[in-house]
Design a protein around this nucleic acid. Sequence first.
DNA 1: ACCGAAAAAGTTTTT
DNA 2: CTTTTTCGGT
Length: 765
Amino acid sequence: MSELPMTDESAGRQAYLAELNEAQLEAVQALDGPVLLLAGAGTGKTRALTTRLAHILATGRVASPGQILAVTFTNKAAREMKNRVAALLGRDSVEGWWLGTFHSQAARILRERAERVGLRRDFTILDADDQLRLLKQLLAAENIDDKKWPARSLMAVIQRWKDRGLTPDRVSADDGAGDLAGGRMLGLFRAYQERLITLNACDFGDLLLHNLTVFQSDPEALADYHRRFRYILVDEYQDTNVAQYLWLRLLAQKHHNICCVGDDDQSIYGWRGAEVGNILRFEKDFPGARVIRLERNYRSTGRILAAASGLIAHNEGRLGKTLWTEDEEGEKIRLLGLWDGEAEARVIGEEIETLQRRDPDLDLNTIAILVRVGSQTREFEERFLTLGLPYRVVGGPRFYERLEVRDALAYLRVVHSTFDDLAFERIVNKPKRGLGDATLQCLHQAARGLGVPLFEAARALLGTAELRPAARRSLAALIEDFERWRDLARTASHVELTETVLEESGYLEMWRNDKTIEAPGRLENLKELVGAVAEFDTLAGFLEHVSLVMEVLEAEGGSMVSVMTLHAAKGLEFDTVFLPGWEEGLFPNQRTLDEGGHRALEEERRLAYVGLTRARKRAIISFAANRRMYGSWMSTIPSRFVEELPADQVEVESDQGLYGSTFSGLGGRSHGGEFGGGQWVGARASPGFARARERRQAVPFIEVEAREVHTLPGGTVAVGARVFHRKFGYGAVRQVEGEKLTIAFDKAGEKKVMASFVVPAAEAS
DNA sequence: ACCGAAAAAGTTTTT
DNA sequence: CTTTTTCGGT
């Protein structure tokens, strides 16, 4: 950008402004005072936001980029914004700017002000697992029956309080505590908070909560941040909770230069404390606010937009927007009615192959399958594996949540902080050192008596006769190890430290000696962890990253279909979107409905809206008549959302004579409506089903050709054989069930694959 | 203290 | 159905 401050007029001639439409331009140029940008799906929201940020800099309104605070909701959105801002400004990085998730920015502030809330600067951020273990300990100490009051649900209560910006002393008596945990819920909350301070730790909610305490109890500190942040940008405002809202309001109350971007129709995090009310109330909260609507959609065809708009119109209490597009009408939304989840996965696989046949250069990255719950991804994985169709599951099991990685991190945490009892407990007997329950109980007692962390208590106990000689010797060795590692931390690089700790602790050795098939994969993960450590300047920096960003960036892996939850898909777009599992109970989700009633139903509907509006060219919705849940079969009926779609935008293709009057509003093109009187009945033997089968088989299968190419020479498949798979690499055959092999892959873990997709290991090289 | 078997629980969604 | 937790025997 230019060195010289520009007036709005000269900046108006900047190239980056020329590409904006009228509403976007208004959003970019209305720099001063509060602005609410109501941006519908696909209306160029991120472009407006990033350009606005560039424009603040270009017009010389701030002396340095550090005077702009820009917050997003997810790490993914933060990354996207960083990249786009950098690209727009022609820089290679925006490192050090105040641009990130609410939680990461709040953590940064809290590091500067930790003492104010009784924490040390090097406090640890606990993950969900640690939180739960901590609460369980408290339940045990307070003699609260965790059968009757599961720690998980009590934890949720605490989290909801924190989401609302409430500390224990601010929770009012009538505030939901009721008879929870035998009426001792509030006391439990207080004990939990006290324990966190003792541990020099905080949880996710505390990052925001402690910030609020700092701002409210220390006017000097708040004034300092007012001096620092002259402009505030907020993405996905509809997803903010009360604590985040208060945080923003405190930070913006001096300059009022706050711009919130959001779409009330895409609010899908109510279950996590998000308040749609924040966005609905904006004009009241920030007097004189300008409201700008972005309504021109650049993403989807007319039909997709019409279907999505028709669906979301069933919600009440919307701010209301009219999305429009100059794009063509496009294809109708297709609705597939199928027998069960397996058939659904098979048909979607076939649809993708049809698309591939139609366009041999098709980039699979333009295709996504968006599901309601993570467990739905399995059926697709299994099917795509047999088809040899490349896919990626976005947001699947996370690297930092794996057992071995968490153990390794616990070692590092203990090295880094003597206060981290949770980490200490986790690794004290891993590998086995003969320090079991009895020893640990003794340690806890001593720690409580002396008022010191477990690590210190351990040191103190060594001088007494309380422990049995064997345990004492073992514990002494461990303490000595940690002291040596802490010395090493001062001199050696943190990579070297990590390697040394893992090696000398015997942790690596433990996995090397482990004969289970997971062991090699776990060692591989530990190696990867060391690689991740190497990317950070300091151990503290690495640990902070791990706790705030649980995910690991996956390498771009070429052309692959994406499978992910609807939540994970927000903000993304694809040419073709498959939306399976539109069944009552699954979507809308029964559990959600039970908890949240009508409010929750509307949120589910918004989730459907989000799913549909991810599609650029085509959307294919499907539902199954039968679905397996924890091993038992459930018969299901189509989601009410199916009926809420405008009939003239939808084409129904139900193969099975299972399509009935329940959603006659759609005017069917059923292939077998005469069976079962249009009810969801049917058996595998029914004529409708048999006919559906026939019809299926008439479609040529691509995998037939593939199978001939890859077939393993007959008879060579045996348990124990080494094989190679083009996606998972090398592995050993564990089990053979006809054509289905269970293979323990060296890197990918255990998978079921068809014999036709592996070759003997020797031949592959 | 440790190991295995048996029982129970769990599936929303994420920082 | 899978994964985690609990229990009882050594």
